Amino acid sequence: MSEISHGGQPQTVVVLGATSAVAERYARLQAAQGARLVLAGRDPRRLDAIAADLRARGAAYVHLAVHDLASPSAGFDAAWAEMASKLGGRVDTALLAYGILGDQKAAEGDIAEMTRQLNTNMISACAWLTVAANQMERQGQGTLIAIASVAGDRGRKSNYVYGAAKGGLALFAQGMAHRFAGTNVKVLTVKPGFIDTPMTDGLAKGGPLWATPEKVAADIDRAARRGATTLYTPWFWMGIMMIIRNLPSFVFNRMKI
């Protein structure tokens, strides 16, 4: 049975960065409820494969929007309007899920690389959130979901360029949630820890701190449905990051993290 939204119609969902592992799993959950989806990303072949899978899982409609979402020439307003038009001009949920881990050492020595990482993970992401939020404000309802990271909670030498971008994105989304407080537009900031995805293939994996994309996607879906504004996933990262944020500098600066 399809989940019902406005006027007895299925939910409409735009997924920005639909080829990411978490986004794909989230889209599967929506497809199982009969949602209508727009999948945005750079790789048309991968998008085609994901769309076929979602249709088989029960999606009522899937449209592909091939875009380099991080490009300064993305034409955010026009591109968003085109995606929304494929869903009848109304978007119930928008998930922003794209990003790059980047190379910290490369960014330290190359301003162009640092700028690329900041633009991809924060500046362009904030632009997409803005055009989506403005549409939801006009229609009087909607849910925005921004995937940030626990790396944004405190700058660390191992990944402070990535952390700064994700921290900026989180602060932006949190401010947007405050902007819409008391309305039917909801903004959820997601702060995952380590996720076993292709993006983290360069890291040593395994152990209790690692989560699967399925786990993270399910947590996001539940948090969005209950109208949460912040989600640490898995849940224990809330406690871990509380400790890290509150460590005094003389202790923190001795740590190799």
Rank of each mutant, 00 (worst) to 15 (best):
D48M: 13
S85V: 03
L96R: 00
L101C: 00
R55Q: 12
A79L: 13
T93S: 00
I123D: 01
S124W: 00
S124Q: 07
A56V: 09
L69T: 04
M83R: 10
H67N: 13
G99F: 00
E82R: 14
Q141E: 15
T143E: 12
G140M: 14
N121T: 01
Q135K: 11
A81C: 07
M122G: 01
V131A: 06
S71D: 11
G102E: 04
N134W: 08
T143Q: 12
R116M: 02
E108M: 07
E113V: 08
M83E: 10
T115D: 08
A127T: 00
F76H: 11
A81I: 05
A127E: 05
G109Y: 04
A84M: 06
Q104C: 05
M122L: 10
F76S: 01
A106G: 08
L96H: 04
G89N: 07
A132M: 10
A132R: 06
G109T: 04
L118R: 03
A52H: 15
D92H: 07
A112F: 01
E137F: 14
R55H: 11
A70T: 04
E113S: 07
M114F: 05
I111W: 08
S73C: 09
L54V: 10
E113M: 05
D110T: 00
R138W: 06
A133D: 03
M136W: 07
K86Q: 14
D53S: 15
L96Y: 01
G58C: 05
I50C: 06
T120K: 00
A133P: 05
A59N: 12
Y98P: 00
Y61Q: 15
G109V: 03
R138P: 06
A112S: 06
Q135C: 10
Q141V: 13
R90G: 02
S124L: 01
D68I: 07
M114K: 05
G140A: 14
E137N: 13
A60L: 10
I100P: 01
A133S: 11
R57P: 03
V91E: 02
R90T: 11
D77P: 01
Q135S: 13
T115V: 04
N119A: 03
G109M: 03
G99Y: 00
T93I: 11
I111F: 11
Q117P: 00
A74C: 12
D53M: 10
Q139V: 13
Q104T: 02
G99E: 02
E108R: 02
D77M: 07
A52W: 10
M83G: 05
H63W: 13
D110P: 04
S124G: 08
